[in-house]
Design a protein around this nucleic acid. Structure first.
Length: 798
RNA sequence: GCCGACAUGGCGGAAUGGCAGACGCAGCGGACUCAAAAUCCGCCGCCCAUAAAGCGUGUGGGUUCGAGUCCCACUGUCGGUACCA
């Protein structure tokens, strides 16, 4: 008989609505388990979304069984480019499209039966929410962390609009196919670089995957080096470079500036001007990724020379797009003998290569850059010194002569925080003719998005808000004179950088979050989300948190104590997305197999931290398994526990608990299958299973498959909720087998197995192993005997 | 390019340095059935008539009594690369 999952799941879902299983009480500790909230796209949820949400829900229920009161909220990251583009495509207002999508998402999310507390639902596009997004910006502005700057953006000359990198495909506009160029526009920036060292240092104590910490550390990219001034030959100019290798300064035989470097115009010689301008334009059409990945180095000579400050040599100045304007000073000194990229460039353009570090001080014919350690050569008074020492010596010398100074440099750049778009939080400042840029009054927040006839890009590069003169024209909060509102909006990141704080106090009108609630719940105990957010979102959220710490809003330095990144669900080995046409919807699967089966299958498809390939067929396996559990329990006639049954029970608890703690949920599922098979077998043999073992199995199953577990729990005559029980404990001693199996190896090769009593002494076991393998040991001399306790004997023989 | 990861049967995957392929899907054979579904039993890496033997965890080296696992060098795939989030 198949169990009736439809009726059971409907019944329990209703029951949990009436009487939530997750209730506060005085003796319970709070636990905050958070999902990265979704962007409610028009395509609805797919089985890839489910994976993360099931994972966090299983973890939340697991905490409930450990006596915790769990906060497990859900909300919507609904501002941003995709929502706006979807709305434009559907020819409807983004607010209406978003509301519809949210409704659909919510309906689909209910099918998961997660313990979401919908009372705490938030939406980044809700003025009551974005009031605080704007408030934070205002505080950053007051603190001098928000500033304006001209920055290049992708520009489609045909659509006359700025484009996101996402909208640029192979250097062409995704909408019309024209070649995309760069255009300088006034942008709002956030000084995240001011927090660089704290963002780096505080990584250390986080209980996060090491790979994510590493990625963030590399992204911040702290490096020690020097800024060195090169005088330009013949004119009164200097070029400042940043280098991590001041020790190689004698080998600097040319310089390269980024094509966007402001000095290019000042330095270029008249005869080279045309070629340089052409090159600058060409590189402006390339994306930064393309610039990095281009196989062949390109560049042009500026027609000007600089003076190497140590040896006085004239070195040519070039521009090339492998140098980035926003890292260091946007200019480098090139030492082809000791840097692979410089070597390639020098070889291609026939520039001199001078070795200044050599193994044992012996100059070689270089066929590639020499990046090993060695002794200094061709470096005047530093010759013969170890390169590592020369680094310090040369640095000191440069500082003494006032031509360079020690610097710490970060790869991290300030954050471009404005968008020339409609669907985002208005930036809460005004531009006043007398007072300049002035933040709006706190009491005027939120600055709401006005209704607008056309929310499509304007064609001027400005936000559509710029066209609404009623809204734009306002008065200055400082002098009450005429002023114009800022028409740029914030990026989607703005809301997602602090939303985790708001869930604990979502309806507070007075404060972003009350002190009480903050101390009760925060920081987040467990944060679950996709690995694709390893750097940007998680770094931005950490930055926001640190700022809010500095102004006293929160009293903790890091927002997410523990982090788990789940892998993607792929179909045909590519990420599920509507544009790829490989989306699998959970709706039909829930109907056919039930929520419990789908929940369990989502976990079974593979290790949660890695990508897994989706296969609809596989769900049959877990569905059969749940039927098997149903039969095992409903047909069971309890017997008294035997030693064997007790042993199986403790092993079961042990295996499931250890795997849960390691987040190895796919092997938790396979563990359940193995033990259930074993129990079915024992049930046949013994006539039944003892009550405690059956109870244990159901409690252990309940976080993953809450409906069927609750139903079986009730069928067994229990009147309390299974989630009021505690996670069972194991006793290692009671897991011990009487007889153990020992593997016998000859010189590391499998040669058989022996069974011995668990109490057998080592010598006896080795003796027995030799007897068992006597055939293979004939005519051989035993060199060594290795015994691994309770596991194997390896006899090394010649 | 840079940063991070991954690579094991037909497929998803399992394996604290110790029996490679647990568990499941698909497939094959059988039981039950008038039949089907459900269920149950058996087989299921390659080579091979069968067995034994041999081979086998992307490629090439190394460390070790013993390597899927550790080290070095490659190849391929995926994620991120700052305006998708």
């Amino acid at each position: 008989m198949e169990y009736n999952f439809n009726a059971i799941e409907k019944k329990w879902r209703q029951k949990w609505k009436d009487e939530p299983i997750n209730q506060p009480s005085e003796d319970k500790q709070n636990y905050y388990c958070l999902d990265m909230f979704p962007y409610p796209s028009g395509n609805g949820l797919h089985v890839g979304h489910w994976r993360g949400y099931v994972l966090s829900d299983v973890w939340s229920r697991y905490q409930i069984l450990h006596g915790k009161y769990v906060l497990h909220p859900m909300g919507w990251d609904a501002f941003g480019l995709p929502a706006e583009n979807y709305a434009i495509a559907q020819k409807m207002h983004p607010a209406i499209a978003t509301a519809e999508n949210v409704e659909n998402f919510k309906r689909q999310l209910e099918e998961i039966s997660a313990i979401y507390d919908w009372e705490k639902e938030i939406n980044t596009t809700d003025p009551d929410f974005y009031k605080w997004t704007q408030w934070i910006f205002l505080k950053m502005f007051e603190a001098g962390l928000a500033y304006e700057k001209e920055m290049p953006i992708n520009w489609c000359p045909s659509c006359k609009t700025g484009l996101a990198n996402e909208e640029v495909k192979e250097a062409c506009c995704d909408r019309c196919g024209s070649v995309v160029t760069k255009k300088n526009l006034r942008q709002w920036m956030l000084k995240i670089t001011e927090y660089a060292s704290r963002l780096l240092d505080d990584l250390e104590d986080l209980d996060w995957p090491e790979k994510v910490k590493k990625m963030q550390a590399d992204w911040i990219g702290k490096s020690y080096g020097a800024e060195i001034d090169f005088k330009v030959d013949g004119i009164d100019k200097e070029v400042k470079v940043f280098t991590t290798r001041p020790d190689t300064l004698y080998g600097a035989t040319f310089m390269v500036l980024a094509p966007e470097n402001a000095l290019v115009d000042e330095l270029v010689s008249p005869e080279c001007k045309e070629a340089v301008e052409k090159y600058v334009f060409q590189s402006s059409t390339k994306s930064s990724v393309d610039r990095m990945t281009d196989k062949e180095k390109t560049g042009v000579f500026l027609g000007r020379y600089a003076i190497n400050p140590l040896n006085g040599n004239k070195v040519p100045i070039w521009i090339a797009d492998y140098v980035l304007n926003d890292y260091g000073t946007g200019a480098i000194m090139c030492v082809p003998a000791h840097d692979a990229r410089d070597f390639e460039f020098a070889t291609k353009f026939n520039l001199p290569i001078v070795q200044v570090i050599a193994k044992d001080g012996a100059v070689q014919d270089l066929t590639e850059a020499y990046t090993e350690d060695g002794l200094m050569v061709n470096s005047e008074q530093f010759n013969g010194v170890k390169a590592a020492e020369a680094k310090t010596l040369i640095l000191d010398y440069l500082e003494q002569k006032n031509i360079g100074k020690k610097t710490t440099n970060y790869t991290l750049r300030d954050w471009v925080f404005s968008r020339q778009r409609y669907w985002g939080e208005p930036i809460p400042v005004v531009h006043c003719e007398c007072c300049g840029i002035v933040g709006v009054k706190e009491s005027d927040l939120p600055i709401t998005l006005p209704d607008v006839k056309s929310y499509e890009p304007t064609g001027t590069g400005e936000s559509p808000l710029a066209d609404i003169s009623d809204w734009v024209n306002t008065t200055c909060p400082k002098c009450a004179g005429p002023a114009k509102r800022e028409t740029n909006t914030m990026p989607q990141w703005a809301g997602s950088s602090w939303y985790y704080l708001r869930y604990v106090d979502p309806k507070n009108k007075e404060e972003l979050v009350s002190k009480n609630k903050m101390q009760e719940w925060l920081p987040v105990d467990m944060y679950v989300g996709g690995i694709e957010h390893a750097v940007l979102h998680l770094l931005y959220a950490r930055f926001y948190n640190k700022f809010l710490y500095d102004i006293g809003v929160v009293d903790f330095k890091e927002p997410f104590t523990r982090l788990f990144n789940q892998g993607m669900v792929t179909k045909n080995n590519i990420k599920m997305s509507k544009s790829k046409g490989n989306v699998v919807s959970p709706d039909g699967l829930v109907e056919k197999y039930g929520c419990d089966s789908l929940r369990m299958y989502e976990l079974f498809i593979g290790p949660p931290e890695f990508d897994s390939e989706w296969d609809d067929n596989g769900i049959d396996g877990v569905h059969r398994f749940l039927n098997k559990v149903w039969r095992l329990v409903t047909t069971n006639k309890p017997i008294d526990a035997t030693k064997d049954l007790e042993r199986v029970r403790h092993k079961l608890i042990y295996d499931i608990t250890v795997r849960m703690e390691n987040f190895s949920l796919n092997t938790v599922v396979s563990g359940f299958m193995e033990y259930t098979n074993k129990l079915v077998d024992m049930q046949k043999r013994l006539g039944g299973i003892d009550k405690e073992t059956i109870d244990t199995l159901i409690i252990l199953l309940s976080p993953m498959v809450p409906h069927i577990s609750s139903e079986l729990w009730e069928k067994l005559g229990n009147t309390d909720s299974i989630f009021d029980r505690v996670w069972p404990e194991y006793d290692k001693e009671k897991m011990q087998d009487d007889e153990i199996e020992i593997v016998v190896q000859i010189s590391g090769k499998m040669a058989g197995k022996i069974k011995v009593d668990a109490t057998t002494e080592q010598d006896v076991i080795i003796q027995k192993a030799k007897e068992a393998a006597s055939n293979k040991l004939k005519n051989k001399q035993i060199v060594k005997e290795i015994y691994v306790k309770n596991k194997l004997v390896n006899i090394v023989a010649k």
